[in-house]
Write a protein that binds this DNA or RNA. Structure first.
Length: 410
DNA sequence: TGTCCACTGGAAGGGAGGGCTT
DNA sequence: AAGCCCTCCCTTCCAGTGGACA
């Protein structure tokens, strides 16, 4: 066969044993190290459902990557196995993606509607209508419905607790079906935003998932590495390093697994047969940069313009900016690109969004007579991000544009 | 001690885009 | 076609504010 340019890459022997899905956070292994107790506790509560009774509502707390979602999905699989007759419906919903009351009701409802044409549309009906439709659908049969609301704090923060109130009292409107809720939150304080009645009904049972420490992370990595790699491809030293790095980042197991996967990919691409410390360090940098670049790419144009404005200032040595300065630069960029400018009020909000995404630092500071404003600073690598921004066709007019250096008088 | 700057961030509301109901 | 309803993105309006300075 003729040599193709792909040949060298195909020839390198993969250090992954089979598909690398095993290292993705979405993969649910048969064993979740250091979460056995939580699984058991949750199983005990939810087992009621198999007797046809409504289990208690559960609230689960824990930071990202502490295994909340994994445990909940694990239980879902167990229900699949145990409940052949499908009396128990277990449905998972992420409130960060579906973040409106309407969306949640619609999402739940559609799980019970097989006929595509009868599905609840994503807009158009009144929320009450959708609720009634949902009640009607659920009550068609005697069944127990367990609804998992992941990132439940997101929806409460945005829309208040009306939707939870509605879902909690849905059992009063049902005669045959029964509904239980499992809420998952990153934020321990989130119940403070709830109406006391909602709070007490929602948290019949509470569970807290503590962050993993380095040792526990190493166990998790070892377990996964055993499945994913051939012997020796992931030496203990490498796993320990990854565990240590991830433990520094608040014990996030998802981070640890990502780091392992990317380290392995880098080792493989390099033609090495095992993961070395160097691969781990490079993987760490790569992940950090990739995350930022992805976030920047998916920004709406207006936010890109604002971010570019902040970076252009940084380029000329102006690192700490006020809202006013950012807005002035932004207006200039709008003028040059022909994009119609937003009001300063809106731009403040967009700056706050950039802050939440971790792309800039913005904190409110008072300069006395100089007024009270945000102090804004980019927190992304200037050159890499600028390159990404300038790829946007809408920003073509300002490619290579530089700000004039301020002549400081003093 | 009070003033006053440059905003902040809440509230209300408009209107576009989507889609059902009658 | 007219009348609703929902969400998203945005504008307008504005009371409120931390702290350097007079």
């Amino acid at each position: 066969m003729e040599e193709s340019i792909f040949q060298p890459y195909l020839a390198t022997k993969s250090i992954f044993r089979m598909d690398r899905e095993i290292l993705r956070p979405s993969y649910i292994p048969d064993k979740l190290p250091h979460r056995e107790d939580h699984i058991e506790q949750l199983a005990q509560i939810l087992a009621q459902a198999l007797k046809g009774e409504r289990p208690s509502n559960v609230l689960i707390f824990g930071k990202t990557g502490t295994g909340k979602t994994a445990v909940v999905k694990y239980i879902e699989n167990e229900f699949r196995k145990a409940d052949a007759a499908r009396m128990v419906h277990y449905l998972y919903m992420n409130c960060e993606i579906v973040d409106t009351p309407y969306g949640v009701l619609q999402g739940i409802g559609n799980r019970f509607i097989e006929n595509f044409n009868q599905r609840i549309p994503f807009t158009g009906l009144s929320t009450d209508r959708v609720y009634n439709l949902l009640v009607e659908k659920l009550d068609e049969e005697k069944r127990v419905v367990i609804i998992v609301l992941d990132e439940i704090d997101k929806i409460v923060l945005k829309n208040g607790d009306d939707i939870l109130y509605q879902l909690l009292k849905i059992n009063d409107d049902l005669s045959r079906a029964r509904v239980s809720l499992i809420g998952i939150s990153n934020d321990l304080k989130f119940t403070e935003y709830l109406d006391p009645r909602v709070r007490s009904r929602l948290s019949d049972e509470k569970m807290v998932f503590p962050p993993y420490n380095a040792e526990e992370l190493r166990d998790i990595l070892t377990e996964r590495a055993r499945l994913a790699f051939d012997n020796g491809a992931a030496p203990e030293a490498a796993l320990s390093l990854i565990a240590a790095l991830a433990a520094q980042e608040h014990g996030d197991a998802r981070r640890a697994l990502d780091l392992l996967r990317v380290s392995a990919e880098l080792a493989e691409r390099n033609g090495d047969d095992r993961i070395a410390e160097e691969h781990v360090q490079r993987a760490k940098n790569k992940i950090e940069l990739d995350t930022v670049i992805e976030a920047v790419k998916s920004l709406p144009t207006q936010s890109k313009l604002i971010l570019l404005g902040i970076l252009l200032n940084e380029e000329v040595g102006n690192t700490k900016l006020t809202t006013g300065e950012v807005y002035t630069t932004y207006r200039e960029l709008c003028r040059r690109t022909g994009i119609s400018p937003l009001t300063q009020r809106r731009v403040t909000d967009l700056i706050s969004e950039l802050d939440m995404l971790g792309l800039v630092h913005a904190r409110v500071r008072s300069f006395g007579r100089g007024g009270r404003t945000k102090e804004i600073q980019a927190s992304v690598p200037l050159l890499d991000v600028k390159k990404v921004l300038e790829k946007d066709e809408l920003l073509a007019e300002v490619r290579g544009y530089r700000l004039k250096v301020q002549t400081t008088l003093i």
